[in-house]
Amino acid sequence: MDILARNNVKVKGRGTVPMLFAPGFGCDQNVWNTVAESFEDNYKVILFDYVGAGNSDLAAYSPDKYSTLEGYAQDVLDVCEALKLENVILVGHSVGGMIGALASLEKPELFSSLIMLGPSPCYLNDPPEYAGGYEKEELTGLLDLMEKNYIGWANMFAATVMGNPQSPELSADLEERFCSTDPVIARQFAQATFFADNRKDLPNITVPSLILQCTDDVIASMEVGHFVHENTPHSTFRVMEATGHCPHMSHPEETIRLISEYLAGDMANFEKKKTGDRV
């Protein structure tokens, strides 16, 4: 299978150190346009879409595989393998950060650092210890909203994913889809994302990480950000001035700056480690 075509992989940049950008839930690799471009001078920039999102190959979608975040993490690993990447800097937004973390648990040797924008290991409240931010009904309400916003063109796509033999595969539909995809796939991705609980995985992360926490992020609250930081070894926590959940789009300059600063420091640490000094 051609992974590069399957995941709509785009390789750009003039550097050699690979920087792999993993989108969050909902949209495709275009969310990274501004941020990724700024790293093209010094890095090898890799963009991709998860199977089922953007311009990926919908025929490669498997409801079983992509019913959990591990399936998406495998996409990340597949892309790394297809491009024979090493010492990858993985930049993941929202659930993309968790997907990257899961990929690093599978193959820690592939990654040099993990940069997570607005990550959350669990969106559900689990009182009294943990406040993910949401009750089950509220997350189900989100699924319903998604459904309502697909009215009109749902039927065309639904048939493909359900593998209805009577309707031939989707015509080579390569138009820009940005934030829209097959509603059934979107719903499954949403379920995999918003009902996941990866809190126990955080302490196992060995790759050094940067957590970028927005101010007033309704999706991943400050509290959740702290939780991730406290439970993830070798993690650095930075609170952004940016508000909302998409700092890479709303506040690209700040995002770029914080990532660059971290990488500069991290590379220094990396160099130190190589020479055997204690960090």
Partner: peptide, 24 residues
Amino acid sequence: HINEILSVPARLFFQLYFCPLIKK
């Protein structure tokens, strides 16, 4: 903030879809 008049699911949806779309 507009969140004031959005239902809880709508706040999530707003961040996930409205913000990226209006931006791009």
